[in-house]
Design a protein around this nucleic acid. Structure first.
Lengths: 205, 205
DNA sequence: TGACTGATTGACACTCAGTGCCAGACAGGC
DNA sequence: GCCTGTCTGGCACTGAGTGTCAATCAGTCA
């Protein structure tokens, strides 16, 4: 019956509780707001003790943003798998486009996204996660550009990754402002087009 | 005797106390670390009550980053004053270069900078400030590009400003890693060069 | 000089996030 | 049945940040 076959019972129950707490908490957040929901509320609703909550989530923000860390890893994997003849920008764009999405359907994502832009502490944490993505993706872009991993003087890879993520960010913000009516991918492309050096023979794939 | 001529005594003492508390707090931060310094420590060292501290600074982070908000306004002013025939990138670069610096000498700035990159809560707040800069500078770049201020569809200005600030950020990080040995301006230029679309006849001024 | 106004102050109590510690419950291997 | 390692709830604690209130003090007007 278990989705993930034979694992220690501990591991399975732990994952189940984790998911259940996250689900309960997100319901509370979306109904009464992130800041108005206390950890005690969540723990009570999920039927665990306050102390145990902190054994599953380091902070309240992690409930909302926990997936982002994993998502970064998925993007890195996707980026590594891009063909070697794609330039840095194209590879990044394709990796972002093709990386499997974690999380909910679009309608829920929009609600979460709105909450994120309205809540300073969430916004701050989400940008911290973007910094983690940057640290994750930069080595791969360095490799692609033929820059040594420890070359402190060459900022080209860092700049490209940072700008790509900045474009992703403003595109996400625009997507949220448009209530999800516009295509995120097109928004990202239009943002990148404004800064990307005249594309050197881009592959259309 | 007062530096700022005739103002209400209240205003003058308030500014004096503000500056004194900030100075005292920065000393504590630099000697024993940001997180290891509590608000009670600061209040005690500055000779005011804990409650009064929060009447001068909303958060502990504001002591370190309070200047950044004002700095953003200075950059915006500088940007507005750039000649109309400079393209967006050049105008931004020159505004960042010429805006008057608030804050300490380079050695202290380096210490603060190191502390900033080592302390997650400070890092998060500083990026929030960068977002404020972005909101501040984008309208001016929109104007320069001839984009209507309320045009939600055109992300070009947003993208350029966001990428410029991203470049400033990674340059600042590289500057800090190099212990201030490299020129921040050159680092910014080299980062921007990696992403800026082939400069349309850049003015060298 | 004295009364009034308004901003500032310290003290106290409070909420909430997050951590350390400890004793008990419980699954799994022997 | 015993031992081991993990998870759990409860309790106490720190530290940030807020609301409230009475006392203080600069500035003003009479």
């Amino acid at each position: 019956m278990p989705t993930t076959p034979d694992q220690k019972l501990w591991t399975r129950t732990r994952q189940a509780v984790h998911a259940e707490v996250a689900r309960t908490a997100m319901e509370l957040f979306l109904s009464r707001g992130f800041e108005a929901t206390t950890i005690d509320d969540i723990a009570a609703a999920a039927g665990i003790s306050r102390r145990s909550f902190f054994r599953y989530f380091g902070t309240k923000e992690d409930i909302v943003l926990g997936d982002l860390a994993a998502q970064g890893e998925l993007i890195r994997k996707e980026l590594e798998a891009r063909p070697a003849d794609e330039d840095a920008w194209t590879a990044l764009l394709n990796a972002l486009r093709d990386a499997p999405r974690l999380g909910q359907d679009d309608a829920t994502m929009l609600k979460i996204s709105k909450m994120l832009y309205e809540t300073p502490s969430l916004r701050a944490r989400s940008i911290e996660k973007h910094l983690q993505w940057q640290a994750l993706l930069t080595p791969e872009i360095r490799r692609r550009l033929g820059v040594a991993p420890d070359d402190e003087d060459d900022l080209r890879a860092d700049a490209i990754v940072a700008c790509m993520l900045a474009c992703l960010d403003i595109a996400g913000e625009a997507w949220t402002r448009s209530n999800g009516s516009r295509s995120l991918e097109e928004l990202v492309l239009s943002a990148v087009a404004a800064v990307r050096p005249s594309a050197p023979d881009p592959r259309r794939s």
